[in-house]
Amino acid sequence: MSAIMEVSGLNAWFGAAQAVKEINLSFEKNTVTAIIGPSGCGKSTFIRCLNRLHEEVPDARAIGRVLLEGDDIYGRGVDPVAIRRKIGMVFQKPNPFPSLSVFDNVAVGLRLGGLRRASILKEAVERSLTLSALWDEVKDKLNAPGTSLSGGQQQRLCIARALAVEPSILLMDEPTSALDPISTAKIEELVTELKKAVTIVMVTHNMQQAARISDKTAFFLLGDMVEYGETSRIFTAPKDSRTERYITGRFG
């Protein structure tokens, strides 16, 4: 298996407070990696370092190496905006652009990238919406506001938006925690489909979800990565007693 992304010696701070400590981790192509751990342990901060979103927070900084297909995304002269196109992100709360239609929500990234030809845009939007399993539900209301969709549909719209620019990695930060069980199941199905096209790193608080859809699982605690391994092993026979306590709900 080839690693599409390799993280080494990654540390991140908010001001003087260190949120992520010396993480070494690789993501293999076309896999789903789940990041689990209690609230505040640095999961979001960690994945926000993977597409250079972390540095957008005032006073925040990160050191370490994050290689995307061999190139350091923190390298000199690298444009963070270009990085975020290659490494897309989906957040906990669906956040379609409120003033944009369903179509424009998906097309926005491509337009920003300079794409103008209507026919190509149309094709790309349809492809992304199909990939995100939303096309059939919205093909007749492409001009409706993105925010008029249901919560689960909005989240799939955000996934379509991220996919439109054909990223190689998709970061997802608790993408289903605001959704009902049916919408959650749809996203889980989708993730399993999507990994044929992209590599997925997903933060989740739902142990069963991590167990169901991820190939690898990393357990974070207080900014450290305590344990990492095959999901099937982590959820049947974790090595570290802290992992064991966390996933069996004995923490605290």
């Binding site: 142990m207 069963q208 167990a211 959820f235 049947t236 026979a237 974790p238 992992t243 064991e244 996933i247 069996t248």
Partner: peptide, 9 residues
């Protein structure tokens, strides 16, 4: 309960 880890074992 959908037990995991030691509980599952």
């Amino acid at each position: 309960q959908q037990p995991l880890a030691a509980d599952l074992r």
